[in-house]
Computed example of a mutant assay.
Amino acid sequence: MMMHGYTKMQVVWLLLLLTSSSSSWHSGHGSDSDVQCLKDLKQSLVDPKGVLESWVFTEHNTDGDICQFAGVGCWRPDDNKVLSLSLGNLGLEGPFPEGLQLCRSLTILDLSGNKFSGPLPERISDQLPYITYLDLSNNSFSGEIPAGLGNMTYLNVLALQHNQFDGGIPAQLSNLSRLVSFSVAENSLSGPVPDSLQRFPPANFTGNPRLCGPPLDKKCKKRFRLRIHIRPIRIHLRLRRINDASSIGAAAGFVVGFVVAFYFPHRFLFCRSLRPYIVRVCG
C-alpha cells in the first residue's frame, strides 16, 4: 500500500529512526507501567486466533521480557519500554484498546486490518501523547472522528481509511503540522475537506459520497442563511382617565338611586325620547 509517496514499511523505518534519536524524552518512565499496559490491552481484546497467548506475564517480569512478545517493539531489547505495537491483521476484535496510556513511550500504533468497532476516545491524545504513527485502517470504527486527534502534535501518519466514520473531518486536524500521510477514504464522511488537508491526493478522500471540496472534483454547495428581521410593534392603549369629580358624581348617583329604590319601591322614573313618565311596577 502506498501512502503519499512512501511504502508503509518505509514510513515505519523512517519513524523508527526519527523517534530513536529522541529517546531522551522518555528516559525517566518506569517499565512497570508498560507491563501493566500490555496486560490491560490483552484483557480488553477478543483474540479468536489466540495470537496474544504468547503474551505470558509472570509475577516478576525481568527487563526485556515483554520485548519478546509478538507485535511488541521496545526502545532497547534489554528494557521494558514499549516503542511500538504492530498488531495489524491478527483478527482482533473489540472497542479501541484500553490501557494504552500506560505505555508512556509508545510512538507507533498499528491496529489495521482487524475487526475493531465502536467510536474512538474523544481524549485519544491523552492516551497517546507521543504517537507519531497511527494506523487504524480496515476496521469497523464508527462515529465521528474525534477532534482530539488534532492535539497529537507529533503525528506524522494518520490512516483512517476503510472504516465507518461519519460526520465531518474535524478542522482541528489542521493543527497537525508534521503530517506527511493522511487518508480517510471509504468512510461515510460529509462536508468540506479542511484547507490544510487539501494537499493530499484525491484518492485519500474517495469513497465518501458527501465529502466535497478540493482535492475532490465535487464542489461544496453554498449555504444560504435566511435572516428574518421582525420589527417589534408597539401598541399604545389610551385609557380615559377618570377624574375625581366624575368619581364623586358616580358614587353620589349610586347612593341616591339606592335610597329611592329603598323608600319608593313601587315606582321608578324612566325617560324615553326626552318625555318623562311614571310606570307603576307593582300594585
Rank of each mutant, 00 (worst) to 15 (best):
P97T: 00
G94T: 02
G118T: 08
N114P: 15
L128I: 00
I131M: 05
G99A: 11
Y130P: 00
P121A: 07
D126Y: 05
L109S: 05
P95L: 09
L136N: 06
S105W: 01
F141T: 04
N139E: 04
E122F: 04
I108C: 02
G118H: 05
G143W: 10
P129Q: 07
P129F: 06
Y133G: 07
T132H: 07
P97C: 04
Q101C: 03
L100G: 01
D110P: 14
L100S: 04
S117P: 00
E122A: 09
G113P: 02
G143K: 04
L120P: 06
E144H: 11
G118E: 08
K115W: 04
G143Q: 07
L134S: 14
Q127H: 11
C103N: 10
I108A: 12
P121Q: 10
L111V: 12
G118Y: 01
L109H: 10
S137R: 14
F116D: 03
I131Y: 02
L100N: 11
R123W: 01
D135V: 12
L136S: 03
D126W: 05
E122C: 01
L100T: 08
L120F: 03
G113Y: 01
Q127E: 10
L111E: 03
N114W: 08
L100C: 09
S137A: 14
T107K: 13
I131A: 10
S140F: 11
G99P: 02
